[in-house]
Simulated scan of single mutants.
Amino acid sequence: MKDNFSAIPVFVAVVEKGSFSSAAEKLGMTKSGVSKRISVLEDSLGVRLFNRTTRSITLTEAGERFSDYARNSVVIANEGFAALHNLQNTPKGTLKINAPMTFTRLHIVPYIKEFLDSYPDVKVILSMDDRIVNIVEGGYDVGIRIGELEDSSLIAKKLADCKSVLCASPQYISKHGIPSKPEDLSNHNCIYYSLFQAGTEWTFYKDSKKLKIEPKGNFIVNNSDAILEALLNGLGICQMPTFIVAEHLKSNRLISIMDEYTLPKHAIYAVYPERKHLPEKVRVFIEFMHNKLGGGSGYWDK
């Protein structure tokens, strides 16, 4: 059956050119090679497709009937190849994106209209989820990931740095004071993000030393927007990425504390399954977001 399909373009070329030699020239084959492929096809189908003489070939009745189907199949296949080529080389089609909720709401959704205006043949399906999902199994074209990346076959493109600060509201600080070292946090209400990839501990660096503490508090949640709301209401202290709290730090609604300690450095990445044959819709989206987010320090830190 496989040989039958591969022989169809050869059969169509012979029909269109009227001879084995002309078909061979068109296909870049030898005349004997073309003749052999037609003979194998005839043997497989159990019918003679051409009447052969020393000077010419003509289609048999079976060949005439088969030729219409064969030509249509070649036309349809060529249209399919052209469609794939167009899809691969032009930003178009459905782009499925998986990304974390708060970051996406703040720094991707505001640019979606501009992206779609720039690429009107692209349709975006955006799935916002703070859990890490499998890009391949979920059928996603691209994912946005923050923090340390797990070893995998995914290709990663850095979009921006992800800086974090320890912060609290002025109301909380005026009531409970300011911790000066990590050990002091045991006397404070530490709000904890339950999906924190680094584990259950907070890590601090100072003078080439690494210090770890396990935060204790009365509010653990799996959503950064909820943490921000609790921080602004004076509930406690939390490590927060600046892409969430930068504007609140600038307006003094939140205050960074223990600034002499450095928090782990992370980054924001676009991840996708393969670099080879990367669809144009994926390439332009990653490039678009890289330009918008800054590539290095995020625009929110500037």
Rank of each mutant, 00 (worst) to 15 (best):
T262P: 03
I268N: 00
P264L: 12
I257H: 14
Y272W: 01
V245Y: 09
A267D: 02
F285T: 05
A246I: 04
L278V: 05
L249P: 01
M258R: 15
P279Q: 09
P273F: 05
S256Y: 05
Y261W: 10
I257N: 13
P279Y: 11
E280Y: 06
A246H: 12
K265E: 12
F285D: 01
T262N: 14
L263G: 11
R275D: 00
S251L: 06
Y272P: 05
T242G: 00
M258D: 09
R253D: 13
P264S: 13
H266D: 06
E274Q: 08
H266T: 06
K250L: 01
I255N: 13
Y269Q: 09
D259H: 04
Y269H: 15
I255E: 15
M240K: 10
P241R: 14
T262I: 05
N252P: 04
T242Q: 02
P241S: 12
A270P: 04
S256T: 03
L254V: 06
M240A: 15
F243G: 07
Y272T: 03
H277W: 06
S251V: 04
T262Q: 12
V282D: 11
I286W: 02
R275N: 01
Y272K: 01
L249G: 00
I257A: 14
P264D: 11
R283D: 02
H266M: 04
K276A: 10
K265F: 05
R283V: 02
A270C: 08
Y261T: 07
S256M: 01
T262Y: 08
K281E: 03
F285H: 03
A267Q: 00
F243W: 15
F285E: 03
V282P: 06
Y272C: 01
A267G: 01
L278G: 12
Y269G: 08
R275K: 01
V284W: 05
H277G: 07
T262M: 09
I286Q: 06
L254Q: 10
H266Y: 03
R253V: 05
H266V: 05
L249C: 01
H248A: 11
I286N: 02
K265W: 04
I244K: 15
K265A: 10
M240D: 12
E280P: 05
M258F: 08
L278W: 07
H277L: 11
K276C: 07
A246K: 10
P264I: 08
S256I: 04
L249N: 00
S251Q: 09
D259L: 07
F243I: 02
K265D: 09
A246D: 12
K281A: 03
Y269T: 06
F243A: 15
L263Q: 11
D259W: 07
S251P: 04
K281Y: 03
F243V: 08
L278P: 06
Y261R: 11
L263K: 10
I257M: 13
L254S: 14
H248G: 08
R283I: 02
I244G: 15
V271Y: 03
Y261D: 12
K276D: 14
L278C: 10
K250C: 01
L249D: 02
V245I: 13
P273S: 14
V271P: 06
K250H: 02
E280K: 15
Y261F: 14
R283Q: 04
L263I: 06
E280L: 10
K276P: 03
V284F: 07
H248D: 13
S256N: 13
K265Q: 12
H248R: 12
R253K: 15
S256Q: 04
R275C: 00
P241N: 13
D259V: 04
V271C: 12
E260R: 01
I255M: 14
S256A: 14
R253E: 14
